[in-house]
Design a protein around this nucleic acid. Structure first.
Length: 277
DNA sequence: AGATGCCTGAAA
DNA sequence: TTTCAGGCATCT
């Protein structure tokens, strides 16, 4: 699914498209996506107006005043706005919000992994465990180097697995994990608690810079990601290792290899990212 | 800490 | 036919 930069671009698109619209009807053909069931959403949201869209980590927070939909796209979730309810239905359409102006917000999800949970605004962390435990946003203002260093010191798991842990830092997924480790010249299998202070700082700085760059470029579209406006990102042209096994490293020419780390496909340069004692 | 389930489609 | 896929919750 989308990682933080992609979710942020979805947020920006949705903000332009649906803020100010009022819900008339909610529908679904796969009720499991709506935590608590369709009736809850229908009852609570009929007549509610979208007041804004926020984001925390990879979660979207769709605001309806005192109510919020906490939406996670997981691997394949997408939003799009149809001008009318009669606009031809796309494949994988599973949830729809019809607005009083006749337009319709549609949620598509090929794998049906995504979830939406209705919560009282301000009580998101009480209701959603993933939000309660969420680590800092990866910005210079919020992602503290000392705290990151302390978190890594406690973990002997491979560094890649640790930066994928959303309680350590919010928003890093498989693509940006591989990319930031390449940028910081760290082997993905190196135990987190064995990184030098210099390596931790390089990784910290790379996470901040890379996610910001990806947001600016509209995100990465390697599988099917498009934002709520249907736009692809441009970040996929800036990737150095992800999905590039068998091609030469941009820094040294060594062939990029792909391995498994913590059950996830992992790409790195054996020369630039050697295992260190 | 590490594996498994959730789902479906594309590619090997 | 099997494997793999941008993620997370929920088990061992």
């Amino acid at each position: 699914m989308p990682e933080l930069p992609e979710v942020e671009n979805v947020r920006l698109g949705l903000t332009k498209l649906i803020v100010g619209k009022t819900v008339a009807q909610v529908g679904t053909d796969w009720e499991k996506i709506l935590v608590g069931g369709l009736a809850l959403f229908q009852t609570a949201l009929a007549g509610a107006t979208v007041t804004g869209i926020d984001r925390r980590g990879k979660y979207l927070l769709i605001r309806f005043g005192a109510l919020t939909i906490v939406s996670h796209l997981r691997m394949e979730g997408k939003y799009q706005l149809a001008p009318t309810v009669d606009t031809p239905k796309p494949r994988f359409l599973h949830v729809w919000f019809t607005f009083t102006d006749g337009s319709q917000l549609r949620y598509l999800d090929m794998r049906k992994f995504g979830r939406m949970q209705l919560v009282t605004t301000g009580e998101e962390t009480k209701a959603v465990a993933g939000l309660a435990k969420m680590g800092p946003e990866p910005t210079a203002a919020t992602f503290d180097l000392k705290a990151f260093k302390a978190a890594l010191a406690k973990r002997k798991a491979p560094i890649k697995s640790v930066i994928l842990d959303q309680t350590v830092v919010a928003g890093v997924g498989n693509i940006y994990a591989d990319e930031t480790l390449w940028l910081a010249r760290i082997n993905p299998e190196q135990p987190a608690n064995t990184l030098s202070a210099r390596a931790v700082k390089a990784l910290h700085d790379a996470i901040i810079a890379e996610l910001q760059k990806a947001i600016t470029l509209g995100g990465t579209s390697v599988h099917s990601f498009v934002d709520a406006d249907g736009h692809r990102g441009a970040m996929q042209d800036q990737l150095h290792v992800y999905d590039r096994e068998g091609t030469p490293c941009d820094r040294c020419g060594t062939t990029i290899v792909k391995i498994k780390v913590g059950q996830r496909g992992t790409h790195y340069c054996p020369h630039c990212q050697p295992k260190r004692g």
